[in-house]
Design a protein around this nucleic acid. Sequence first.
DNA 1: GTGAAAGCGCTAACAC
DNA 2: GTGTTAGCGCTTTCAC
Lengths: 331, 331
Amino acid sequence: MVNMNDVAREAGVSRGTVSNYLNKKNVRGDAKHRIEKAIRKLHYVRNTAARDLRASVSSYVVLVIPTVWTPFFSELTYWIQKELNDRCYKVILCISNNQYDQEKDYVKMAEEQRVAGIISISYSQLTQHVRLGIPLVSIEKDETGLFPLISSDNYSGGQLAAKEFYKRGIEQYIFIGSNQASSTAMVARQSGFIDFCNDRNLNYKVYTTPSSRHKKEFHVQHEAILKKVTADSLGKIGIFAYADESALETWRILKELQVRVPEDVQIIGFDGWKIFDNRTLGISSIRQPVKDIASCSVKELDKQIKGEGNGSVLRKMLPISFYSGETTSEI
Amino acid sequence: MVNMNDVAREAGVSRGTVSNYLNKKNVRGDAKHRIEKAIRKLHYVRNTAARDLRASVSSYVVLVIPTVWTPFFSELTYWIQKELNDRCYKVILCISNNQYDQEKDYVKMAEEQRVAGIISISYSQLTQHVRLGIPLVSIEKDETGLFPLISSDNYSGGQLAAKEFYKRGIEQYIFIGSNQASSTAMVARQSGFIDFCNDRNLNYKVYTTPSSRHKKEFHVQHEAILKKVTADSLGKIGIFAYADESALETWRILKELQVRVPEDVQIIGFDGWKIFDNRTLGISSIRQPVKDIASCSVKELDKQIKGEGNGSVLRKMLPISFYSGETTSEI
DNA sequence: GTGAAAGCGCTAACAC
DNA sequence: GTGTTAGCGCTTTCAC
């Protein structure tokens, strides 16, 4: 494979001069032309891996994410890649499926590759494994408190959901969560919802389903809850699901049960899934500011990499909003 | 940053021995223990970038893909990453938005990084730009004929759509395509559909909308077509949309127009979008074998990288299937 | 401005 | 088995 020496020889200059040329340093006119000619003639392509090794830099960023196969994560991945690419970072996509071992392997890989930084959406204690001082920004959860953390304002999201129900005259406030341990985000959503209810003396109930990864039970449990909820009376019931995935399931089952949505029961999800561009799935939902999460994370990571961190560890909560879909009534 | 020399010194052996140890070569027991101790003590992490440079190998694969923010591509990305990861490749995620310039930049980057291989889903002549002989596998389209190509059997997909309509007593066969130039896949779907109709003397019509990237026109044009289609008679109309994106839009507009689906009009899309796991969007669709496309592509790329190609260029078409959803009648 | 030389961290070939 | 050494392809002093 043709390298800088070949180019230098062909152009009749030294390797250093070629390097200078490639790095936009000043090079005399005639030497410059001869180098350009040599590059074209030999089809020289610089080896940035070697360059990075020598210069002790890296332009790689590792993205550790549970999946890309869900609207929220695929949108997030889309924006993060874009932001990183705009800043000339390459992204190494690491899908963890929420497996702790996978996550650890990815971090190890990141360290061995001496990557510039890591962005992680992890629900385990991943951040404890970063030894080499690689800059890391965490999205949604970091309990170590050692790294910058970007997340949606989940608590306000829960409040907002309750408030939107309130505006629509809901009398029965239902929260459906999951029994996933350690979901800080979910707990915050629930707290916001409940606090709003308590403040106004509204009737609320909290239910829990297994995580959606246990498909069968997820479904069965959901159905049981909904049957119970809709047994007594209809018409003023509002169900706040901790995530769109759950809200969709709720909607589907209610259809099966012949319960009219939103006339009999109203539903609000969380995430604000968009299939692409602006195509939602119809459910009303608390929308996470996905693009902002991406740009904020990347901006912060970039700062860390460039050593511009001001010492204090950033904790940033981004504002959510309500998307009014087909599962809540007009007001 | 601590390196192999430090470890060697600490362990009282030479650098070569440490290298041997790390690469699972035979190392004597006591030396081995001293090395392990030194590694732990110094928190040594091997630098695989340097290793790869020296050994002239790479474990990176570049994935060039239009987006990840659409169910088909996000699922495809999910499986490709998994397959590559299982084979110890790291994936550099390159989202092109179908921009030719972006794609070229990514290929250039791939060459400069001396990556092991490229997987591309491109609708432009991307493959002409791979100069350095990097192994490449193309998904869905490659007109150069120089690289292995994996795709769904789009033609049979078109036929299958028509056949499923036929089984349901459809009399008016409508194809809605897009005016995207150069979509080989779409043309094949259309041909399969039409050929089935011609073979049986069925009435068909072909319509064309702007690409969905031009949102406004995409919508307007769609509505115009559907009004025309549903103007005369209802009840035996089958609409085959070239992609789920278009099928969803069709469904939505028909709802607006108060046309009952599937009683008055039936719809079949293409792709078989799944939001996650097994959650579809309700539309009946010709399902692409996404997971097979991924594993087949990765397997072929791996073969190329390992130099096990047998000379002839692979062209592989994977079988599609019909998913029966809510937009076609039961039979 | 340009050439010579040192060296980023590692592997592999070679003697011992 | 282990130490020594050359060198992957590049950047970066440092004289001239």
